[in-house]
Structure formats: structure tokens, C-alpha cells
């Protein structure tokens, strides 16, 4: 049994246009991914691809106009999407925890840092304040906050972005989670701090034996810190697999374009691919969601693309993946 297994997740945004006619934006169109114990999975894709939405659905954070249409998200065999709020509350923050983007706004401005780490423990277990406070100091030391005892008394506005992100990581680790979800954990931090935070996050995750699901649009981050990668486009995971296989031999035209667009490849003389418009979620093409932008699309792409298995764990959702590569599997 996988630690986390998302199956055929569909989320729509339902609203009205100016004339009051219902409009549906199909934001997630059958997301499926699995994550094993101890694995680090990177979820990449352009803005609007549905990366954050997938995670929000997982954590029960969807709110109108977003609507869960169908799908399952099995965490250790339990469908998170079917749990009631009380049962979900027992899991989130404890077995599954989240590190969000914009750390500065994710801490309560009127409560001391240490107090917030105490409270996340008390929300899940009947620990004494003194005990929880000691663990809060330990955690702050673990995430590299110098002079932790004194800094635990400080308020969030007295922390820099990088330090606040470390505090969030400490909070995420507080209840010894088995899965940590990080939604663009380094947005808004400068490059050296980004590397520090990611090094810290991945090493602590490994130390705790937890699994990591990290959302990013930085392919370098995935290549460096993850075991597996899932590439998302228009609410669909178009290609997924072990990092070295997906990045070494990208099969889906979108993954190929994404990799060709990295600054390193363009500098090395590669031709920057045509960017194309972000997909219109209100009018996605029939069949393959990428067919409007795809350079090799043909008539067959108007039908639902098949899931092609290319190698162990490496799969792509495309009509035009070379058949001989499929045979290798």
C-alpha cells in the first residue's frame, strides 16, 4: 500500500458569467499520483496547472467556488476526501503536515513563535505546556534558529522570511508527520536562503523517515532534491516517474518543452521553445489537454490520450510516445 495515492481527482471552479449563465473552469482533470514511504516527489508545472489546488484538495482546504467533483486521495488506505472534518483534523497537522509559501503571513502576528509551536502540539496531543515548550526549543534548534530559547519569545514580525520559513518547518515537524507537503516553500526567498531552506527540509525529512511532496516551478529544485517527479499541465499529470528517467529521457512533448526552456539549455545553444498561452480551463480541447500547444499534435490527439508505461514507474500521457520505448518496459 502506498503512503499516498491520489486517484482520478477532478476539481472544478463553478461560477457565473455576466449574464448569469453557469461557467465551469475544469481546474483538475483526473490527477493521479502515488507516493511511497520515504520518497520525495516534486510536482512541477506552470502557474495555473493545478499544483497547489491538488494539495489544497488533499488537505481539505478547498472552498467555494472550487468544487470537488470526484476522485480519491488515499493516505495509508484512508480516503482523505471522504473524511468528516473531525477525522480529517486528527490527521492534518499530525500525520500529514504542510509547509506553505509566504511564511511571513502564515504565522499568527499576535502570538509568540514558541507559543505557536506549542499550540500545534497541543492541538493533537494532551501534552503539558512545559513539555511542549521544551520540544519547541528543540525544534527551533533543529531548524537552525540560533539562540532558540530567546527567539522563541519573539513575534513573527521580528523574523526574516528565511527564518520564518524555518519556523514553519519546525511547526510542520512538531507532531512527527509521515507526510510533509511543501507548497512552493522557497517562493520569495533569495537564492542562497532557498538552498539552505531546501537542504534543511530534505535532510530533516530524511532524518524523520517521512515522505515529502514538494510543489515548485523550479525544475532545478526537483532535479536536486527529489526522487520522483510529476509534471502537471492544465490539471492533468502528463508525465511522471523517477527524476533521472523523466529528465534524462522526457517522453511527453510538454516535458520536453519545459526542459528545453531552462536557461542553461538555452544558453548552451538550444532553441527556446514557443511558449504558447496558458490553457483556458473553461474551454479545454477535446482529448489531450496539451494538443492546442503541442508541435506534434494531429487528429488522433482529439481523443483521450493513453497512459503509456515507458519504464518502471515512468509513464506519460500521450498518443505519440515512441512505441519501441514503451516496449522496453
Amino acid at each position: 500500500m502506498s503512503l499516498l495515492s491520489i486517484e482520478d481527482l477532478h476539481v472544478h471552479f463553478v461560477g457565473e458569467d455576466r449574464l448569469g449563465r453557469p461557467v465551469t473552469a475544469r481546474a483538475l482533470n483526473g490527477v493521479s499520483l502515488t507516493l511511497e514511504q520515504g520518497e520525495r516527489l516534486g510536482l512541477v508545472g506552470e502557474t495555473g496547472a493545478g499544483k497547489s489546488l491538488t494539495v489544497q484538495a488533499l488537505m481539505g482546504l478547498l472552498r467555494a467556488p472550487a468544487r470537488l467533483v470526484r476522485g480519491r486521495a488515499l493516505f495509508e488506505g484512508v480516503d482523505l476526501l471522504a473524511l468528516d472534518e473531525a477525522k480529517l483534523n486528527r490527521l492534518r497537522g499530525a500525520a500529514i503536515s504542510m509547509v506553505v509559501q509566504s511564511p511571513k503571513t502564515s504565522l499568527d502576528p499576535v502570538r509568540r513563535i514558541g507559543d505557536q509551536i506549542v499550540r500545534i502540539q497541543q492541538a493533537h496531543a494532551p501534552v503539558s505546556r512545559a513539555q511542549a515548550w521544551r520540544r519547541a526549543i528543540d525544534l527551533l534548534e533543529k531548524v537552525g534558529v540560533a539562540d532558540a530559547e530567546r527567539r522563541a519569545m519573539a513575534y513573527p514580525h521580528q523574523f526574516s522570511g528565511g527564518m520564518a520559513q524555518r519556523v514553519l518547518i519546525a511547526m510542520a515537524l512538531a507532531n512527527r508527520p509521515r507526510l510533509i507537503v511543501a507548497d512552493e516553500p522557497t517562493t520569495g526567498l533569495d537564492a542562497t536562503v532557498q538552498a539552505q531552506v531546501l537542504d534543511l527540509l530534505t535532510s530533516l525529512v530524511r532524518e524523520e523517515g517521512a515522505s515529502l511532496l514538494v510543489i515548485t516551478h523550479d525544475i532545478g529544485v526537483v532535479a536536486h532534491y527529489c526522487d520522483k517527479v510529476a509534471v502537471m499541465f492544465a490539471g492533468v499529470i502528463v508525465e511522471s516517474g523517477p527524476v533521472e528517467q523523466v529528465f534524462g529521457a522526457p517522453a511527453h512533448p510538454y516535458t520536453q518543452a519545459l526542459l528545453a526552456a531552462t536557461p542553461e539549455r538555452i544558453e548552451a545553444g538550444g532553441k527556446a521553445p514557443r511558449a504558447g498561452l496558458p490553457p483556458n480551463l473553461r474551454a479545454l480541447p477535446e482529448g489531450c489537454v496539451y494538443s492546442d500547444r503541442c508541435p506534434i499534435a494531429d487528429a488522433s490527439c482529439r481523443t483521450e490520450p493513453p497512459q503509456r508505461l515507458l519504464a518502471l514507474g515512468h509513464q506519460a500521457l500521450c498518443h505519440h510516445v515512441a512505441p519501441q520505448r514503451e516496449a522496453l518496459a
Binding site: 480529517l88 486528527r90 499568527d108 499550540r119
Partner: peptide, 29 residues
């Protein structure tokens, strides 16, 4: 819908906890 309330939800706090521990003190200002 602020970041820290969203985080508190994701951290498994009940509605009452969030309302009285996080929202009320901030709103009282």
C-alpha cells in the same frame, strides 16, 4: 482567509480553536 488561519486549518485545528485562539485576538485589535 489569511495565511495563518489557512495554516491553522491545515494544521488540524478545530473551528472553535481557530476562531478563539487566532481570529478573535487579531480581530480585537
Amino acid at each position: 482567509h489569511s495565511g495563518f488561519v489557512e495554516s491553522a486549518v491545515a494544521a488540524g485545528n478545530t473551528r472553535w480553536r481557530i476562531l478563539f485562539i487566532h481570529i478573535l485576538p487579531n480581530a480585537m485589535r
